[in-house]
Simulated assay, not measured.
Amino acid sequence: MTEFQNIKSTAEDGVGTITFDRLDRRNALSVELMTDLSDQLDAWAYDDDVAAVVITGGEDVFCAGLDLNFQSGFNDTETRAIYSEACLRAYGTLLDYRKPTIAAVGGPALGGGCDIAVFADIRIGSENAILGYPQIKFGLTPYFSPLWRIVGLSQAKLLTFSGDRIDAQEALRIGLIDRLAPTGRVVAQATALASSIAETTAKSAVNNKEMARRAPAMDPISALTYETLAYREVIWHPDIVARINEAYSKIKKK
């Protein structure tokens, strides 16, 4: 397994876990961290030993956003270009990843850290989570498009026009996080969900993620046709037939 400098990664029982490893900088985003994140996601994309991926910063800090030490060099045009390319790669990889991703958010998830959570498929938040886009206060812009698809236009406008931060309860209320975990248990809860996904097998996880990637952009009839054809395609797979027969046999024995 590749050794990274800014993340830790493990793969066990179908679950890949990426943990940001810059606690001295509150897991702030650097080009190197985003590159490590992208590289590890790429490495697992076609690895059948990984069905779902958990992304976390641990229990106390998810990600404080852009590293201010790095931002101080933005007067350099080349530095801005390199950072933009790293952002586009990392966020684009998450947005169109072929396997389910879960953000386990403990503590602050701000600016680019909130973006990473938003670009994941599912967000589990700890009771100590704080989310928001404080860069708005400096005149900077957020990634609005993925946010409003999760929380709706009005709530997305509230967050991105003001730059105000919200706590875990408010994030749960508006749908920015999907489930709430006790403080200190967010990684465990996210891992349990990822394990449940992994039980369906990596192949099924990829098939279902593909549907989730494509169907929302279709009109209702096109989506119905696409999803029916997807079902028709998998129902004949020998491994799926075997799994159905096994489940049916267990029912008959009861």
Rank of each mutant, 00 (worst) to 15 (best):
I102M: 05
I102Q: 02
A104T: 00
G107K: 02
G111V: 07
G112F: 01
G112A: 09
G112P: 07
G113Y: 02
C114I: 01
A117W: 05
V118N: 12
F119M: 13
A120E: 05
I122H: 09
I124E: 04
I124S: 01
G125A: 14
E127Y: 00
A129C: 12
A129E: 10
L131F: 14
G132W: 05
P134I: 04
P134Q: 01
Q135A: 13
L140E: 15
P142L: 09
Y143N: 15
L147T: 08
L147K: 06
L147F: 07
L147I: 09
W148F: 15
W148D: 05
R149M: 11
I150M: 12
I150K: 15
V151F: 13
V151E: 06
S154I: 14
S154Q: 14
A156E: 05
L158D: 13
S162P: 11
S162V: 07
D167A: 07
Q169E: 09
D178A: 01
D178L: 02
D178G: 09
R179P: 00
R179N: 02
A181M: 11
P182K: 02
P182E: 01
G184Q: 05
G184D: 04
R185L: 04
V187P: 00
V187A: 01
T191W: 07
L193F: 12
A194D: 06
A194M: 08
I197N: 01
T200C: 08
V206I: 15
N207F: 06
N207D: 15
N207H: 13
N208G: 14
E210W: 05
M211E: 14
M211T: 07
A212H: 08
P216D: 09
P216H: 06
I221F: 06
S222H: 11
A223E: 13
A223I: 12
T225S: 13
T225C: 09
L229H: 13
L229W: 07
L229I: 12
A230S: 15
E233R: 15
W236Y: 11
W236P: 00
D239L: 09
